[in-house]
C-alpha cells in the first residue's frame, strides 16, 4: 500500500514539474516593419469605439494600447472614445462632464457596464 502511495505522489510530482515553460531572452520576436496604414485606396477602415470614463483607473492603459493600434494601422483605423456610464459621471473632484446624449444612447443600447470596453465595427 505504502509503495503505491509513494509511486502515485512521484507521478504527480513529475506531471507538475513538466508544467512549466522557461522562456529565454530575447523575449520579443521581430516580425518586421509596419506595413500599410498609409491610406491605400480600397482598404477597409475599421471603427473602434472605446467606452471610457474619467473615474476609470484602468482606462489610461487602454488608451495607450489604442494609440499603438492607431500607429500600426494609421488611416485604416478610426478610434472614437465614448464617455458614458458610471465611470464618466462627474464625481467629487472630477467635476468635468464629457458625456453626450449620443454616447449615452450607444452605451445603453449595447449594455456596456465595464470600462474600458472596446467595440469593433
Amino acid at each position: 500500500m505504502k509503495i503505491n502511495n509513494i509511486g502515485f505522489v512521484m507521478v504527480l510530482l513529475m506531471v507538475l514539474f513538466t508544467g512549466c515553460d522557461k522562456i529565454e531572452a530575447p523575449y520579443l520576436i521581430n516580425k518586421g516593419p509596419v506595413e500599410g496604414g498609409g491610406g491605400e485606396t480600397g482598404k477597409r477602415v475599421i471603427l473602434l469605439e472605446e467606452f471610457t470614463g474619467h473615474a476609470c483607473v484602468n482606462c489610461p492603459e487602454a488608451a495607450l494600447l489604442l494609440n499603438d493600434l492607431k500607429t500600426l494601422y494609421g488611416e485604416q483605423l478610426l478610434v472614437i472614445s465614448v464617455h458614458a456610464g458610471f465611470f464618466a459621471m462627474p464625481l467629487g473632484e472630477l467635476t468635468a462632464d464629457y458625456r453626450t446624449a449620443a454616447g449615452t444612447a450607444i452605451n445603453d443600447y449595447f449594455g456596456v457596464t465595464a470600462n474600458p470596453s472596446g467595440m469593433v465595427s
Partner: peptide, 19 residues
C-alpha cells in the same frame, strides 16, 4: 500579443505553462 517598437512589430514569446 504584439507591440510596436520604432515602427516594427514585435511579438511576445509567452509561456503556456507557468509553475
Amino acid at each position: 500579443k504584439t507591440t510596436l517598437i520604432n515602427d516594427s512589430i514585435f511579438q511576445y514569446k509567452l509561456p503556456r505553462n507557468v509553475a
